[in-house]
Design a protein around this nucleic acid. Structure first.
Lengths: 262, 262
DNA sequence: CGCAGTTTTGATTCATCTCAATTTGTGTGG
DNA sequence: CCACACAAATTGAGATGAATCAAAACTGCG
């Protein structure tokens, strides 16, 4: 979906706002996600708070939610390790996956507006997130212009990401959606130092199909087709992109008539 | 689409940041969109700045863009009167309408992240917007906690809105999408004091179809069908919802198998 | 009043869904 | 470690919704 959304991410370690004064276990400055994260901006201007940190780490086992729709909104969550999915529930109980998040990406931003989360975030594998109390973050952002800008960028990027998904759902056919999805994963893995051509899907076909707005069978067929034409290699959840250029080309052309590219 | 998104809106009048000190033509406090807007929060806490205002009014004639994709990001825009559409351009030149905005709604938030707009906002009728310089807004928000919260809410609501559209595009069939669209307009008109059952569409069928991710012919057929079954009355762009309850019911049931409502 | 663009309607084709069966994978307990 | 039971994924065949191609009706405008 959408060219680049290796989102800069928000995170923090330790706990509480007074962390500004006390030296916490692991400061944001030393966090491994430093440059993907909120403190990125922080560091630029505010090197006088080397130990700044907000939020605390929390482990999630496979299937465990970070938060559920309806929960009061208090935190936003930065993925430190692992893989999450977010899903929205329709009124009739059916749900739709709205995104997959990997290290350095943020979930929970949708809760700000209404005071409660309207989506659910679930770990697709054992993961670790950094819980950031939003009101503390806001307060801190007040004092740190670069942090404030970073927060706004993160929210803005989420808006862009969502709009990219809209474009994909509105304009691409099933097979193209899958290609866009795979290419998007590829980019995100690449930007994290992993192989862009070979990776492991953490989500089920069902979850992919929900995200892409088609039925599981259709996704399965699309996988098979791309394998048959030699564009990808599939071994259960292990994917290898055999010809990224050709895959991109399939997105760049309106194929049968609908619009292309994400 | 999506229950409520009569977005609180950001606006301002006059111009420049120094407006904090000089008395501008029309202060936010006296703006007719006051309670839909950013100053909403402002007023709660900061009654000591009765003349506060940022941004300036700008008229747009039908078809005129407030900004274009690629333009450097400097302002966000609150619709004061009229009707806008926002659209994203795909790599191959095709475009997709990503939203329609009416009085009290904000456009341009997607530009924050990358420093340039990645969508285009165009007036669907003669309109007036309030241009708010974003960096000034950020600076002002720094001093006004309630304004800051309001800004975050607005961004968060845009995220929720987009996710609602994702759900619609991923889960509903053409006819259901149109119903969701009409019901959404209905709510937004209602929240502005207009009739929820009778209104004028400002956008073309083409634009509706782009937004809903289907072809024009399909939208036209969906209109005709809903008319034939007595759910709506259509006279060109004038729409009357004859049975809102029944329309909602069609969204609440997985119809032929796909997911409904959202 | 006639032309150009938009909207509607019709007929057909095609993509995706649906239903159903099969295969493959996974976890559990013997 | 194997066998079984259950879940996930694939494949097939047919039904159906939406796209496509084509043309007619309508709308607005000079």
């Amino acid at each position: 979906m959408h060219a680049e959304n290796f989102e800069k991410v928000m995170h923090g370690l330790g706990s509480g706002f007074d962390a500004l004064r006390t030296a916490p276990p692991v400061a944001c400055m030393r966090c491994t996600l430093r440059d993907l994260c909120l403190p990125l901006g922080l560091m630029e201007d505010e090197l006088d708070h080397p130990e700044i940190q907000i939020g605390k780490r929390r482990k999630l086992v496979l299937g465990q939610p970070a938060f559920r729709a309806g929960d009061p909104f208090e935190m936003i969550y930065a993925v430190r390790t692992g893989f999450l999915k977010t899903e929205m529930l329709a009124a009739d109980g059916r749900s739709q996956v709205t995104g997959f998040q990997m290290a350095g990406e943020v979930v929970g931003l949708d809760g700000i507006g209404e005071g409660f989360h309207n989506s659910t975030a679930i770990a697709l594998e054992d993961s670790e997130v950094c819980q950031v109390p939003f009101n503390e973050l806001e307060a801190l952002a007040e004092q740190e212009p670069s942090l404030r800008r970073q927060l706004h960028k993160i929210m803005s990027r989420e808006i862009m990401r969502d709009q990219g998904v809209m474009l994909m759902l509105g304009a691409l056919r099933a097979e193209e959606r899958l290609i866009a999805f795979l290419l998007n994963l590829s980019e995100r893995f690449a930007s994290r130092g992993y192989s862009p051509v070979e990776f492991h899907l953490r989500m089920s076909r069902e979850e992919i199909s929900s995200y892409l707005g088609v039925k599981v069978e259709t996704i399965s067929r699309a996988f098979s087709y791309l394998r048959d034409v030699g564009l990808i290699a599939v071994h259960k959840k292990h994917i290898r992109l055999l010809d990224i250029t050709a895959l991109k080309a399939r997105l760049a052309t309106p194929a049968t008539g609908k619009s292309p590219r994400f």
